[in-house]
Amino acid sequence: MSILEVEHVQKVYTTRFGGNQVQALADVNFQVDAGEYVAIMGESGSGKTTLLNILAALDKPTRGQVILNGKVLSMIREKELSAYRRKNLGFVFQDFNLLDTFNIQDNIFLPLVLAGESYETMKSKLHPIAQQLRIEEILRKFPYEVSGGQKQRVAVARALITGPQLILADEPTGALDSRAAGDLLTIFQEINENGQTILMVTHSVMAASRAKRVLFIKDGQVFHQIYRGEKSDEEMYGMISDTLRILATGGDCYE
């Protein structure tokens, strides 16, 4: 059963003083099933971030539509949008986006507090997640006191705590060293095995090679995709590298 459907999405930016039009997305089509772990790859400027913003309902497509769990995102009213996003989507960003005015625990609580939950409920929701992500010891600390890897795990916890339909991760390993990145990807795999659907945008081959499916975007279109099937991480890594090479040298590839 597909949880996310992206149908003919096009995005054209018009520069502020009229005139120039830039096409970021031409015609994007794909579906994500519940429990999937999808990585989207592409070069800088290929439209990855635009796509992610549209999926996050932060931006609206010029044409086409995004359907999350049977609901068309662009039909949701502006007033309900934040609440909808809060309930159904979890975000993990490259630069963590933790608030330095809150300690770790309060950072994780933020979406729940916005949703108006009681302290006891929040506490009981936090416990298993904190255990899984190995951040129990740092709950009382402040973001500036912990490492990058820990910060990103906190961000994951914040994304998970609302029990979202879909986690959107934007270059989650981008600001991490290779060890912390490896740890984080392991965590992503673990939570995915627990049934969490994840959609990750990245241009790290290592990160993408851990996903169950990799989509490649070029010139605003889905250019190619690779399913993991029974392949090992190493095989995935090799296939992704090959595909990227073909992408970079400009060859056409049809499956």
């Binding site: 932060l58 934040s82 608030l99 979406p111």
Partner: peptide
């Protein structure tokens, strides 16, 4: 910066 983050995490513009 702080309010950008809050918006991303699910706070509406009005909030």
């Amino acid at each position: 910066q702080r309010f950008e983050i809050m918006q991303k995490v699910g706070m509406s513009k009005r909030e």
